[in-house]
C-alpha cells in the first residue's frame, strides 16, 4: 500500500509547486482541483487493508467538494470578475518556487525533530502535510487577487487535512463532515464576497482595498 500512498503524497507536493509557479488563474484552479482529488484519495490510501465504508464515504465527499464543486465556484468568480491572471504578485514566481523548496526541506527537518505518531502511514505524510500548509499560507500572503487568496486557503486546508489523516486515527465521522461543511461554507461565503467586491470596486485586487487604516 505504501506505493499508492507515496504516489498520492508526491502528487500533493507537486500540485502545490505547480500552484507556486502558475500565473494564469484557470491553470491555478485546475491544479487546486487536482490537489483536492488527491487529498480525498489520501485517507483511502492510508487505510492499509481496504477502506471501511466510513473512510470511503468521507473520501468520496472530499473528492466531490474539493475536486469539482470548489473549482466550479472559483471559475465562476473568475469569470464574473473578468480576471484571467494574477497581476504582479508580491513575490515573483521563481522566488515563490525557491520558497516552496525551502519549505519542503524545512518540513523534513521539522518532522525529524517532532517525532509525531503516524500509525504505520508512510514516512512522507507529515513532511508533505507540513509543506503543503506552509505553501498555502505563503500563497495567501503573497498573492493579490482575491481568487488566488482563496486558492491559498484551500491549499492550507488540504495540508491540514493530510496532517489530520496522518496523526489522528478514528476522528468521528460526524466531526469530519462538520469540518468539511465549514470549509465548504467558507469558500461559498468567500465567493459571494468576491462577487460583491467586484461589483463595488470593479476589481478584486485586494492590495488596493486600502480605505481602512490605523
Amino acid at each position: 500500500m505504501t506505493a499508492l500512498q507515496d504516489t498520492v503524497l508526491v502528487l500533493l507536493v507537486l500540485s502545490s509547486f505547480a500552484l507556486l509557479g502558475a500565473s494564469r488563474l484557470g491553470a491555478c484552479i485546475r491544479f487546486v482541483a487536482l490537489q483536492g482529488i488527491v487529498t480525498g484519495l489520501l485517507p483511502i490510501a492510508v487505510s492499509g487493508h481496504g477502506p471501511t465504508p466510513r473512510v470511503a464515504v468521507i473520501g468520496a465527499t472530499v473528492i466531490l467538494i474539493k475536486g469539482f464543486f470548489f473549482p466550479h465556484l472559483l471559475t465562476r468568480a473568475m469569470r464574473e470578475a473578468q480576471t484571467r491572471r494574477e497581476l504582479q504578485p508580491f513575490v515573483g514566481y521563481v522566488t515563490s518556487l525557491a520558497f516552496g523548496v525551502l519549505a519542503l526541506i524545512g518540513s523534513f527537518w521539522l518532522d525529524s525533530r517532532l517525532n509525531l505518531p503516524i500509525h504505520g502511514a508512510s514516512d512522507l505524510v507529515v513532511p508533505v502535510a507540513l509543506a503543503t500548509m506552509i505553501i498555502g499560507l505563503f500563497l495567501i500572503v503573497s498573492r493579490r487577487i482575491a481568487v488566488s487568496q482563496v486558492i491559498g486557503f484551500l491549499v492550507l486546508e488540504n495540508g491540514i487535512y493530510a496532517f489530520g489523516v496522518a496523526i489522528v486515527r478514528d476522528v468521528p465521522a460526524l466531526i469530519e463532515l462538520g469540518i468539511l461543511m465549514d470549509v465548504f461554507v467558507a469558500v461559498f461565503v468567500m465567493g459571494i464576497a468576491i462577487y460583491h467586491i467586484n461589483r463595488e470596486f470593479d476589481h478584486i485586487d485586494t492590495d488596493r482595498l486600502t480605505m481602512l487604516k490605523g
Binding site: F153, M190, A193, H196, I197, F201, L212
Partner: peptide
C-alpha cells in the same frame, strides 16, 4: 469600506 473590512475579517479569521 464594509466589504473591505469583511474580506479582511473573513480571510484572517479563517486562516
Amino acid at each position: 469600506a464594509a466589504l473591505e473590512a469583511m474580506w479582511k475579517y473573513l480571510l484572517m479569521c479563517s486562516v
